[in-house]
Amino acid sequence: MNAHSESIALMHKYLDGDLNKTEEQKLQGHLEDCEDCQAHLRELKRTITLLQSAEHIKAPANFTDKVMNNLPKEKKRMIYKRWVKSHPFIVAAAVFFIFMLGGMFTDWNQDSQLVVSKQENLIIQGDTVIVPEGVVVEGDLLVKNGNLIIEGVIDGDVTIVNGELIESTSLDGEGLMASVGEINGELQTVNRMFDWLWYQIKSFFSGVFSTD
């Protein structure tokens, strides 16, 4: 790099305010002896002055109105999108609720088969579950899509879904006979959709919040 091009590089640093002390002295020293470089710097400074003197141009009249008229209309979809973005928790809760509800409906609609939570010592006749005399069922019992006859003892809660507890039995053809069975817990009969829903929610939450 010769002295001139070095000094020109320094001039640009000077114009950007990047010159340090030694560079400043170097540039000054060169400028004192070199008329070409003096002229060069003068021209650069004059160029900048000319640029800065350039008139400020204004946008045409009605510019703002034109822009505003050309903006895309706020679409409903955008409003939803914006809302969804700003309320993530509500959206998550809603999605969760929909899935839960959907799950319940399929549960309710698809299972028309008899379901019994325990099979031991129980007699199943068609869609009727019988707890025979002398049998003690330990723990809770769930019967779905069937009726329940209790002649023995259930040591826990009983839930019957889509069925009923038959109080008296005439299965053996000997006329009415009082049900001698015993439930040592709560009896729940769930027959309607709403009850089913309520039951599901209750058992879900007791499942979630149970401490044991």
């Binding site: 400020h56 141009i57 204004k58 946008a59 045409p60 510019f63 703002t64 822009v67 505003m68 903006l71 706020e74 955008m78 409003i79 914006r82």
Partner: peptide, 23 residues
Amino acid sequence: KGDQAAFSDVVEYYQHKIYQHCY
């Protein structure tokens, strides 16, 4: 937040600068 009208003040403020830049 979806307030389109508020944008007109933004345009009003920057219009000359941006127009000049483009020009």
